[in-house]
Amino acid sequence: MRDDLPWALVVVFVPFSLVSIGGGPSVFAGIQHQVVDIRQWMSSSEFVGLFAISRAAPGPGSMLSTLVGWHMWGFSGAVIATLAFFLPSSVLCYGVVRVWNRYRGRPWHTAMEQGLAPVGNGLVAAGVISILGISGGGVVSWIIAFGAAGLLALRPKLHPMILFVIGAAVFVGTRIVMP
């Protein structure tokens, strides 16, 4: 497979798709190694720039793959890289989920659901700690996060965009007052 054709993206992203257990970010370091060190498609700082853009945009962090494809081969590269990164894992997941959902309602399935639910919830809780831990915001981020959750507890239908505006305003305001 020649490295000067968009199909090289398939070779890079399909394997990462299938080993990205725990989510897309679990293979970002591996992707960086491939596209920066091994294939030399871009410099390290270019890759970090794409990562920053993917974080600033809405949607999954795995849209980083879209940007790598776009950087190399424009629109067709973006399409190919996105498909190569999302499709293989999605097809696998669909197969598992289909089997899982087929047995809904059986007593053992209910037991598995009840058993896995607190595990899933523990993973979300761990995600909360990890996101707040790596953010550069320190204690301000924690206050905004729990403040937002508190507001949602009081007003469950409050639109998240309102929380986003408040969160951004509080963060920027804090930085202006305490640079």
Partner: peptide, 20 residues
């Protein structure tokens, strides 16, 4: 501003954790 938005988005996750 993005940091603030990201922190507020964590609030949505805390709602799940609290209910669960």
């Amino acid at each position: 501003a993005m940091e603030g938005v990201a922190a507020a988005a964590v609030g949505l996750l805390i709602v799940i954790v609290a209910r669960g």
